[in-house]
Write a protein that binds this DNA or RNA. Sequence first.
DNA 1: CAGTGGATAGAAAGCGCTTGCTGCGAGTGT
DNA 2: ACACTCGCAGCAAGCGCTTTCTATCCACTG
Lengths: 349, 349
Amino acid sequence: MTVTLADVAARAQVSPATVSRVLNGNYPVAASTRERVLRAVDELDYVLNGPASSLAAATSDLVGILVNDIADPFFGIMASAIQAEIGGTGGGRAGGERLAVVCNTGGSPERELTYLTLLQRQRAAAVVLTGGAVEDAPHAAAVAAKLRKLTEAGTRVVLCGRPQAAGTGAVALTFDNRGGARRLTEHLLGLGHRRLGYIAGPEERTTTRHRLEGHREALAAAGVEEDPRWTVYGHYDRRSGYEATLELLRREPGLTGIVAANDSVALGACAALRESGLRIPEDVSVAGFDDLPFSIDAVPSLTTVRLPLADAGARAGRIAMGREEPPPGDIATVRGELMVRGSSGTPRA
Amino acid sequence: MTVTLADVAARAQVSPATVSRVLNGNYPVAASTRERVLRAVDELDYVLNGPASSLAAATSDLVGILVNDIADPFFGIMASAIQAEIGGTGGGRAGGERLAVVCNTGGSPERELTYLTLLQRQRAAAVVLTGGAVEDAPHAAAVAAKLRKLTEAGTRVVLCGRPQAAGTGAVALTFDNRGGARRLTEHLLGLGHRRLGYIAGPEERTTTRHRLEGHREALAAAGVEEDPRWTVYGHYDRRSGYEATLELLRREPGLTGIVAANDSVALGACAALRESGLRIPEDVSVAGFDDLPFSIDAVPSLTTVRLPLADAGARAGRIAMGREEPPPGDIATVRGELMVRGSSGTPRA
DNA sequence: CAGTGGATAGAAAGCGCTTGCTGCGAGTGT
DNA sequence: ACACTCGCAGCAAGCGCTTTCTATCCACTG
């Protein structure tokens, strides 16, 4: 029923071996033979059987990209950049033509592991994990073990925007969340703010922790005392920002600024402030993180920290493909850039 | 080196066949035996070899999701919903545990075909194509041919937010872009607008065409004459909206409203208007399409057409998994809902 | 007590492809 | 003219798993 290599071989009057070699292009085949084979492939409309090929060759052309939330542009942008480096190699046979696939873990540790196992099953050529990790110890250990196994099996593992998992053989491109957060809060402090609310992400995420730590470092360095009640945990989405802001306002109406875990949260915060009759930044300043495309369109435009998501993703993709040297020590830190815009100003008297 | 089924069998003192049956759970195995096998699997840390399994069983557990732009929440939301229905079946062996992978075509017809071929290679269990199709005839034919081959090979093909490709055996959930666009423009006309600019998407996309046609239908029905110079083509992104708006303003400063191909474009339009010193909606009304999450946060919030992306995606996912009956005739139309918000108002005198 | 059938387990034949090794004919050095 | 490369094609042995068919063991039934 379906066309196999053997059919093509028969039609081209050569052995299956030759057809295989023409298709893989890693063995000398006379031009005339190649031509004949290619014609047969075309006429028969032959499509390689991936599983069979992977089985025999003990490798596959799958590259997995794990993201926490595919509906969030933060991940979408990275995934897009990674994929462009992987799938985009275009026509050429040699090396290229990999199937870059993104897997949505939804932030669930189990799904993350499931996907890693599934990719391991498929003998993926490489795996890129993006975004913060969950800090639950057993889970972290399980993931680390899985990653180690993957690298041992020859799968290249790259972490993009995620802290290094020591001893796994993975390459890490981590974001300097702490430093970025610190500079952001320093900016606010510099404007004169002293009562800053902080809307964090989910409590057990590395990203959440690092950003919060950066914020607190800045406060501590400036000698500003911090009320623990001014920090609220939530999710990395708009709704969370909205609700957390109302909560913060309830706890401390005197806040002059709100620092959000990311831009979506910040937007939610803006909405809540506006509905509460507060002006931005006259009454309350707001700051986000990531500098996603929509942040500049907010009114007023959002003060935030720009993370070079696309660049980092592209680099991760190249490393995963073996087209770029991993950084020394298999770890590199990517800095964010403070973007001062309209949503932050001097506090009201 | 790597653990195989045979190793597990040896350890559990059973035949490979038995191990396979335990793992696949579709054949009676005595509880005690099963137990022993499972223990061996665990102790050896065995991971099934996907390619080998797919080869032998002539099926795979891959499900492909094709999107035009993974960085765009429009696709992210759909992909997320689809994936939730596919990958989320959780622990159970039976039926579940599929690897839902999203493939980013970047809107490129070639990449789309490449991915389809790659998925065909992998003998994917199902494929979901999201978003508008390119209207280039040869390409459309090539895609249709590919889809037909896929369905013939037993791969379930679902189109989500994409017009039916006749004769391919695919199931289509199409969005009523035309109707939605028409109702949107009717709303604007009802407010009294007569000079409306239209910022379209890329010219050769079905989505672009349908939305534009809906817009024009409304105009025609209201007897409003349309200046072709009031339509500008661009891309489905913010930047395009920004630039197109400036261009429209140049061509016709007297426009009282701008209808954008989607929400991102609309946001760009808002930015351009604001920078031009025009108020929204007092001077110019703006409308978008899709109702993405950020649209409600715009200032003023965006009048738009809500597309039930998550619902449609979930349904597409279920159909792809064979967990829901395809609609009669293998085609269903999903309507959009007009969301009237702050960005549209009566035109200035 | 032989006969029967249900429940399990095993043997073995592939699934379609890759690749190490062998084979063969033609060009080359002396 | 002879042995010797060298370039190219074929043979055949798997890769690790699934699944059909067969064998076995028991518990019953008549």
